[in-house]
Design a protein around this nucleic acid. Structure first.
Lengths: 252, 252
DNA sequence: GGGCGTGTTGCACTATTTGCAACACTCATT
DNA sequence: AATGAGTGTTGCAAATAGTGCAACACGCCC
């Protein structure tokens, strides 16, 4: 592993917390100012960091553009999008699409609720992995040992009284989810918000993504939301079919 | 400037085009496979790239998370958001917030139209810089020489017949925008979409961001959209006031 | 089982990066 | 004006850290 690159990349999460000046960056990296300067310069040339008017550094525009492009190239996302919109049109609630990647689950698409009350979430944001319905589906499909290892390693923040409290409970929940082929989150992340989710599978049957419908209590009760389950599952299955049907489009 | 970091960072835009295997990466970088491997490994450890099941590399999740965090830390964005939402509620159209950074203009916030017909755009996406109303405002405020230099350097794609055709026309347009303190884009990017935009200024009077309201012809005519101008300008001014009023919140 | 096309590792060489110390610059303070 | 503390910046010599090579380890197809 490359030390120089390692150091340079370590600067990014550091700047993500907020702007910092050269001295601060050097200190937190544990290197000499001049070294930090040269690393920052290289990052700058690539547009990864930006020097604002007060001389301090922040993350740069290229970063957004990259994240953007990367997202748009995801095949599942492309295939799923139209279906998500249609689902939103027929039920009106917020629809999410998420994938698992290296110990994180993240939203890669979202169609906003048509009701005035909206939930907070954002594409690209890592999901509350221990409680979100989509996360349960994605993790439930991991190979046994990987799933256990991950479960042990996670934190279990008690967002609400119904959050998953620990690894044991989590693994149990995952087993259930795996069994039934769908998942819910009933107020486990935010007291008043419920979700139902279904898995999207590739040709080999493995779960490649998960989608969910979320709505706050004030709009529909948990029971009412559950009546949408068949629709959500059907949508997910349609996407699965389309995804496994065609060979992953080779671009260019 | 650091060669190693330079090479490593060059991998990212390359992967943004689509997944690639080790050989391809090495070739396009012009380095030996083993070198490419080690760079990719380091990128991997930082979650910047991800190795998919077919062994090929793609951009990784951390990239999204970083872009995400960076965006949320922008003070203008935070201050403006509530006002954008309110504006959207009162007029129903899509509202955008954009900033300028190193030869690019990018959207940093967006409130979706409440009409069924939506326009395509996405937070983090670089804006069509030669035609977008927000871009004109941001560039019009650059110091003379920088503005000229940039204008010369740009491409002027003819998205529609009303797109800005060349540097001369662009500079002229910028002068006008600078003069009047607001800007429009009447079908310059997409034939049927119009925008009106107003600048958000910091305490020193410099333009720090720009906001716009966009709507397709099928919903309102350009003339009707222009009647919203006073409202847009008022909103922008309110945000400007709030932004220059408080000292930029030092976090942590 | 031989022949590809991958990705991976150990090693010797030297080019690249590093920390230092000295220098520039801006801003307060006196 | 002059001093000083706080920044960011550059040239240099030392050596660490990165490089390409060549050999190896796979998996896959014929």
């Amino acid at each position: 592993m490359s030390q120089t690159v390692d150091r340079a990349l370590s600067i990014l999460p550091l700047l993500a917390e907020g702007p910092a000046d050269l001295g601060q960056v050097a200190d937190r990296l544990g290197v000499h100012k001049s070294t930090a300067l040269r690393l920052l310069r290289t990052l700058h040339e690539h547009g990864m960091v930006y020097r604002q008017s007060d001389q301090r550094y922040r993350l740069g525009a290229r970063l957004f553009a990259l994240a953007q492009e990367a997202m748009e190239n995801l095949d599942v996302r492309e295939i799923a999008h139209a279906h998500l919109v249609r689902l939103n049109e027929s039920c009106g609630h917020t629809v999410h699409l998420a994938v698992y990647e290296e110990n994180e689950v993240l939203y890669i698409d979202k169609v906003e609720s048509r009701y005035p009350v909206r939930m907070y979430s954002r594409i690209g944001k890592p999901v509350a992995i221990t409680v979100a319905a989509v996360a349960k589906l994605l993790l439930a499909d991991l190979p046994e040992h990987e799933r256990r290892a991950l479960a042990e390693k996670l934190d279990y923040p008690m967002y609400t009284s119904r959050s998953t409290p620990n690894a044991t409970a989590f693994l149990q929940e995952l087993a259930k989810v795996r069994e039934q082929g769908w998942a819910t989150d009933l107020g486990g992340h935010e007291e008043s918000i419920n979700c139902v989710a279904a898995p999207i599978r590739g040709a080999d049957g493995r779960v490649v993504a998960a989608m969910s419908v979320s709505a706050p209590n004030v709009v529909v009760t948990a029971d009412e939301l559950l009546t949408l389950l068949p629709l959500v599952r059907r949508t997910a299955d349609t996407i699965s079919g389309e995804y496994s049907g065609r060979n992953p489009a080779e671009l260019k």
